[in-house]
Design a protein around this nucleic acid. Structure first.
Lengths: 123, 123
DNA sequence: TGTTTTCAACACCAAAAGGTGATATATTCA
DNA sequence: TGAATATATCACCTTTTGGTGTTGAAAACA
């Protein structure tokens, strides 16, 4: 394939304003997935979250920023702490994406069932 | 948090036999997601796949290896070409993971609806 | 046989990811 | 005011990621 659909500007990435961290990327990291589960039931500060992981608060903060960029968490200042909570809506994109493939694995299951049933009555 | 739940072996990663590339990681890359969609309907060789992307065949090959490691594609030698096709089953893990969060965004929608209704009869 | 095709494997590179510690900044409280 | 706390931000480091080109082996075919 040609690359002509790529702009002439070779290394200008300034004005792109690309989201950069989408939902798919955000949930790729197992630590971030655990954080989402943790924040599903509790609104927690960074320090509270950090207690559950063997990494520094700075690292926790970075993960939270990535999750926030993807819209999966929101934060609220409460005095001197910042409390984070889950925002599950962006996961709908994932669900939509998945639904495209569901037909294929439904087909697979149907084919498999067919095979098993055919096996019960040998040719 | 302490790190004592981590084994004493400091940098021994030999015997772990870690999968290394799980489904979540595999679908994090947009190119790989497009490849999955492409392979959903067609069983294609590397050269054929590479025609759809502005990257080298070597790069395509790497992406396919990552997808194969996650179990999302399988390959079959046909003469001198290797044909790849979709294996949708591992996406079930994603679906399962998602289902955990569905209750939360269902709750959200319910709460939102409640708010809207409450708004109709001001306090 | 030799040539072409298709891929796999290798070395290499730049950028991003995930982590660290150190240093602000802002808030609470004595 | 000063001290303690909670977080944000900065500079830095190492590993991984996504890409490149080159090389080499196996299959197809003249």
């Amino acid at each position: 394939m040609s690359t002509k659909n790529f702009p002439h500007t070779s290394k200008d990435k300034r004005a792109v304003s690309v989201p950069k961290h989408d939902v798919f990327h955000a949930i790729a990291d197992p630590t971030r997935r655990q954080m989402l589960q943790l924040l599903a039931d509790n609104e927690l500060s960074i320090a509270a979250i950090a207690q559950f992981f063997p990494i520094s608060r700075t690292a926790v903060n970075k993960h939270l920023h990535i999750l926030a960029e993807a819209g999966l968490v929101s934060c609220r200042k409460a005095g001197r702490e910042t409390r984070y909570k889950l925002e599950p809506e962006p996961l709908a994109e994932l669900k939509t994406w998945l639904s495209f493939f569901e037909q294929y694995w439904d087909e697979r299951l149907a084919a498999l069932k067919h095979l098993v049933e055919a096996d019960e009555e040998p040719s």
